[in-house]
Write a protein that binds this DNA or RNA. Structure first.
Lengths: 214, 214
DNA sequence: AATTGTGAACACCTTCACAGCT
DNA sequence: AGCTGTGAAGGTGTTCACAATT
């Protein structure tokens, strides 16, 4: 019930997984689920599941488990998914276009209202549910619409400028796909998705296999 | 020099960041760098930098620091970037297309040789340096070309099938963008990029700000 | 004087194991 | 009997602080 003191990033990531499993389970008409069942589907221990959930409240019933619908509602509320998030994308390249068109974002209350770019050839194009606008309009648009989240898919050298614009206009969180480390002031929240890091983590792991220590 | 017993995922991720900074520093003609300088640019402590590097060898010189070129070479070798990685993408949708065209992959020794899809309308299309082929050709192609890495950008319900095909054909690592948790046998390595998890981590962090515990 | 490499201390996260509830 | 919630134990990753080296 009470607000947690500090919740680890790992816990939050696992909540997303639990939510996904709960949706699947609910689709099959099951009404109750145990921590062991959730653990099995997500690749963690049952104790981990219970610890993660108990950071936010006592959602289960001893001897019985968790109510699938109820737990889903709790997790959605915890993750802030019980509302709509107004979002814009800066950088109308292929990645920005792919994300805008993708179901990942339009699902679950994320609404991409516009893309912004400096390339005159792209201005006015329609991408999924949104239109590409000139970067100069970003500030006014974000302020007027009350946009809370900015997604950066510009080339690395323009990512910090994009972040500065978004922050000045009032966004509260940034999802950054550019490989540069951005500086954002409190209380703006930043999350990075760095494809090079993921690929290199993979090649490291593969390379290790054949080595003596592996 | 010797193989490390066990290196944490966090350490590997930071190596990618160090490498990025080293490239930038080298571009400016600087020849030596301290752990403090690397730390400043990547947002960690200098002790962390030294610990990360010392897991793989003694690359520095006391009182002086690290040679920029030499350290870059070491990290590239550690991450397996001192060679070419043959890669295919399964799922020629917008995301698959964006990744294939993106510089992130063509840089640094990653060569995307083909995309695979079941949609007849997409077969034969050219995406960046590669062509879209029918899924039936995946096994033969991967075997013949000696492809080591598969990137999955299919819808979630087809991701496990894609993984099974890739593994049967002999890939050693998979980068999965589908939101489903894949099962892969040893010694195949799997890495997930889950956009929903990242977005939900961001909304959690934003939502927390206004709360009592924050 | 500057800076690395690293044992020890610390902080954080995960697992164990069981009391407590249904 | 079954399963949660959680204090304690265990394990992993980070920071401290300083001897070693140039």
């Amino acid at each position: 019930m009470s607000s947690p003191r500090k919740v680890s990033d790992s816990t939050v990531r696992r909540l997303s997984f639990y939510l996904r499993i709960l949706k699947e389970i609910r689709g099959r008409g099951v009404r109750t689920v145990s921590s062991a069942r959730l653990a099995e589907s997500t690749g963690v221990t049952s104790a981990q599941v219970r610890k993660d959930l108990s950071a936010f409240g006592n959602f289960g019933v001893r001897g019985r488990g968790y109510d699938v619908n109820e737990l889903g509602d709790h997790i959605r509320r915890i993750l802030g998914l019980n509302r709509t998030w107004k979002t814009v994308v800066v950088g109308a390249g292929r990645l920005g276009g792919a994300l805008t068109s993708s179901g990942d974002f339009s699902r679950q209350g994320f609404r991409i209202l516009a893309l912004f770019d400096t390339d005159p050839a792209k201005i006015g194009q329609t991408v999924g549910p949104a239109t590409v606008r000139p970067l100069e309009e970003l500030d006014g648009f974000v302020r007027e619409e009350g946009v809370q989240i900015g997604i950066i898919t510009t080339p690395g050298e323009h990512a910090q400028d994009a972040a500065d614009l978004l922050i000045a206009a009032g966004v509260r969180g940034i999802l950054n796909f550019a490989p540069d480390r951005l500086r954002v002031p409190e209380p703006v929240r930043l999350r990075d998705v760095n494809l090079a890091v993921e690929l290199e983590g993979l090649t490291f792991a593969i390379t290790e296999i054949g080595e003596p220590g592996g």
